[in-house]
Nucleic acid binder design. Structure first.
Lengths: 198, 198
DNA sequence: ATTATCTATAGATCTATAGATAATGC
DNA sequence: ATTATCTATAGATCTATAGATAATGC
């Protein structure tokens, strides 16, 4: 029954990872401790020797999934010839839309996190800031301030578009939203972006 | 105990309205039937004479709150001298960010709805399409196709920005996100929007 | 001896139903 | 007589804890 300290640490990590996946699929309130522990291959009674509460797990899962999300999206883009195009195209793809479990935690849980307590929101916000900072570096634009501004808006557009596409029961509408967000962020359709005044 | 048919219909409507507010504040899974009925001034036992299930209430609440949200945002903008600027400025305001209960249902529940069953997603998507169509009409742009595309992207940006701002525990970051989304959608900072390639 | 995990369960909460109650509507 | 609402409760589920078990680590 008892395992080594090393194994116990790995088990704890697996619980956090598995929780991050299940939360993205079903939401924080849609997943019980027993489901998380079962998915990690443990029984639910042992949970409270590793975590003070479910909220602590939620905060850690947001932190860990956030780190992973930033690494994945930014890492892949950085190895591409056109990082910003790579990021936007992959992020706003039907494949990402379908894959909630391993997809971006920000797009999966944005409105849910807004209702959680401070530690959860702090963990989420910290990773969201890191993501935005990395996106600003990939971003075309004259000044750092403009890249920062553009990055924050681009992140909002990407998160909002994926959330909309997943919410809609209509595949065609979902695809249209993703295409519109891609075109607008990448300026595919002409000299000036839609939404510009004057 | 028993009330008139007319009063019963009003009670049912109030339950749907109250549910829409509570769901926006606490999420679908964060609100029980008893809380909804209590807020509507009724006891929870009577709920199932009006609704087949909680999911039916959720679908109706999304529908009703969606109709209301579209009326509010589009109606106010239409009476303004510059409808698109009015919409974007009011939507992406700290006041809207604070007011979840009566705020836009799309920004409050986007990621939650993606995990619900088909009827809920259908009701939500229908209203989201109506909102997008109305935004396209307010939208500057040369062709109808470009206005449509711009509207979908603008809606995604607005929903994403409010979700991000509410998720963050950091007021300054929240304000920065809203300002960046406003500036990008309204093209406040120069000839071309950030994010444009070339 | 310590402790990571397991079994079992307490206590709270949530959806849904059954049957009672009292006012409406024929 | 019908029915909108209420009281009461069944049954499921969820967070958290207590105590047992068995392998680690001194």
């Amino acid at each position: 029954m008892r395992v080594s300290k090393e194994q116990a640490a790995k088990n704890r990590e697996r619980v956090v990872d598995v929780a991050g996946q299940l939360f993205r699929e079903r939401g924080f309130d849609g997943v019980g401790i027993d489901a998380v522990m079962a998915q990690a291959g443990l029984t639910h009674g042992g949970f409270y020797k590793s975590f003070a509460s479910k909220d602590e797990l939620i905060a850690e899962a947001c932190q860990a999934a956030g780190v992973r999300s930033v690494e994945d999206w930014i890492g892949h883009a950085a190895n591409s010839s056109d990082p910003f195009v790579d990021l936007v195209t992959r992020y706003l793809s039907p494949a990402h839309c379908r894959n909630r479990k391993d997809g971006c935690v920000f797009a999966a849980l944005a409105t849910d996190v807004g209702r959680r307590d401070r530690p959860v929101r702090a963990a989420f916000a910290e990773r969201l800031k890191a993501f935005s900072t990395h996106v600003a570096r990939l971003m075309p634009g004259r000044s750092a301030a403009r890249r920062r501004e553009g990055a924050l808006a681009a992140v909002a557009t990407m998160i909002g578009a994926i959330a909309m596409a997943r919410a809609a029961d209509d595949e065609e509408f979902a695809a249209e939203v993703l295409a519109a967000a891609r075109a607008t962020l990448l300026g595919k359709d002409g000299a000036s972006a839609p939404g510009l005044q004057g």
